[in-house]
Design a protein around this nucleic acid. Structure first.
Length: 477
DNA sequence: TGAAATGTTGGGGCG
DNA sequence: ACGCCCCAACATTTC
């Protein structure tokens, strides 16, 4: 019997446009996911991501089995388990999709070296990005620091590679006798049981490749046309909701870009707007590749000197959606309930934590890491630093969102606030973004008592704005 | 991928 | 008819 291939699956839990699986499609192969909670330097997944991963692995296991393959799961240090398995199986090749965090790259390098020692070929592919970070460089050969320049260069490099078709047949190799012990998905205990807080997530999402494809198809047919204008509106189904699917590689960015390009005729401007959002994802990965501490240290070093406040009560009020600013609270409650938050609301909620409360962006980044289904090592860190002003092409320190004005502009009827803050649902639109200013009869009609049924603002906007400008001005360039 | 303060303009009311 | 004031509406500057 000829030697099998080993496909090591990571953040690429799909069959469509999956070069690592395609490479092994016409031969017997092992398909393995390693849940690595043992290697140093890897950031543990947050709660929402663990829930997602469990569902996504179950979906992929089903799809692989339907084509004649088998997905097996290991637990432990991937740097030891993968070479051990490859040796035990007598594998000729190991295939995987590249990743871009420093600890991940270190592990993959180690695996490659160990495989080489054993005479086994390792081959890695790009499946997670439209272009590799090292392909998009400045004239001087460095990483771009400004998005528009990065994206212009990215686009100028030509058309993206055409997506690969999902293989129709896979061939499961026998699990070798000399090999690490397999674990079941249930053994990983990724899904919350006591208490099971995942109900809102399950109502919102269908993790896995089919769910991803359904999101993409719906977006292209129903929302793309108006995307350029509607994307900033959190009330309504205006965005693709693909972020967690992209995070776990259930759909490839090449597949998404190809679908957008195919629909370009109807919506030229909208297509470019959406592709630019994929562009921000690429830019974030470029930053992470260039600056591995993106989630830990300010990308602009002078921001490390800023004295953020310790404010446990403020952080808690923010996290639980009890700041007294309805748009911020609606966003934080959407996050808690569904593992997602609309992007504009993310910016406003993040700005509130950093600039109104003067709390370290890392606290917010950690909260999002734990609660977002799309918690992404590059996007999450880069976006928080962007809001803080410490990131690449960042919001200037003096850009401070007014949550009332932002609410009036982007949720004018208050539909988004009403959905996530039921205690304000009966308040008329004129007051819904500033309930503490509403006349007492309007409050009475809506059954709202400020300070009792809904909190007083935990900080006055005008005061907080002045305070932030004063403190942040000290670190300006 | 701001907001607020300040400056400018121009229509309309009115003596 | 004219000058003056008021003040939206818009533009510019500043943070």
């Amino acid at each position: 019997m000829s030697s099998p291939a080993l496909v090591w699956l990571r953040d690429d839990l799909r069959l469509d446009d999956q070069p690592a699986i395609a490479a092994a499609a016409d031969r017997s192969a092992l398909f393995v996911y390693v849940y690595d909670d043992a290697s140093p330097g890897l950031r543990p997944l947050g709660g929402a991501s663990r829930w997602w991963l469990a569902k996504s692995l179950a979906a992929l296991r089903h799809e692989i089995a339907a084509r004649g393959g088998r997905l097996d799961i290991l637990r432990g240090p991937a740097g030891e388990l993968i070479p051990e398995l490859a040796r035990g199986a007598g594998a000729s090749h190991v295939y995987w999709t590249r990743r871009y965090g420093a600890a991940e790259i270190e592990i993959d390098k180690g695996v490659k070296a160990a495989l080489a020692d054993a005479g086994i070929a390792a081959k890695s592919f790009n499946g997670q990005l439209l272009r590799e970070p090292w392909e998009v460089r400045t004239e001087a050969g460095g990483a771009f620091q400004v998005f528009t320049a990065f994206w212009r260069r990215h686009r100028a490099l030509g058309a993206y590679a055409a997506p690969l078709r999902a293989p129709e047949r896979l061939h499961a190799a026998r699990w070798p006798s000399e090999a690490p012990r397999r674990v079941s998905l249930e053994d990983l205990a990724l899904t919350p049981l006591k208490p099971d807080w995942s109900g809102g997530l399950a109502e919102t999402w269908r993790p896995g490749e089919e769910g991803a494809r359904a999101r993409l198809d719906r977006f292209v047919s129903e929302a793309l046309e108006d995307y350029a204008e509607a994307r900033d509106r959190p009330d309504g189904r205006n965005t693709s909701m693909l972020s967690p699917h992209l995070r776990f590689g259930e759909i490839s960015p090449r597949r998404v870009a190809a679908a957008i390009e195919a629909a370009r005729g109807d919506a030229e401007g909208a297509a470019d707007k959406y592709l630019a959002e994929l562009g921000w994802r690429e830019f974030s990965y470029s930053l992470l590749y260039d600056f591995p501490d993106l989630a830990k240290r300010a990308w602009r070093a002078r921001f490390e000197n800023f004295a953020y406040r310790e404010d446990r009560a403020g952080l808690r009020a923010w996290a639980r959606g009890r700041t007294g600013y309805p748009l911020v609270d609606a966003g934080m409650r959407e996050l808690w309930a569904t593992g997602y938050m609309h992007n504009r609301v993310r910016m406003i909620a993040a700005s509130f934590l950093i600039k109104h409360l003067l709390i370290d962006w890392r606290r917010g980044e950690s909260w999002f890491w734990d609660t977002l289904c799309d918690a992404d090592p590059a996007n999450n860190a880069a976006s928080w630093q962007w809001v803080a002003g410490s990131g690449a092409d960042a919001a200037p320190y003096f850009r401070i969102f007014n949550p009332v004005l932002q609410g009036q502009r982007f949720d004018p009827e208050g539909a988004y606030v009403r959905r996530w803050i039921p205690e304000l649902a009966r308040l008329e639109a004129a007051h819904i973004h500033s309930p503490w200013l509403a006349p007492s009869d309007a409050l009475a009609r809506a059954g709202v008592t400020i300070g009792r049924t809904y909190p007083e603002p935990i900080v006055d906007h005008a005061f907080a704005r002045r305070r932030a400008l004063e403190k942040l001005a000290a670190i300006k360039a």
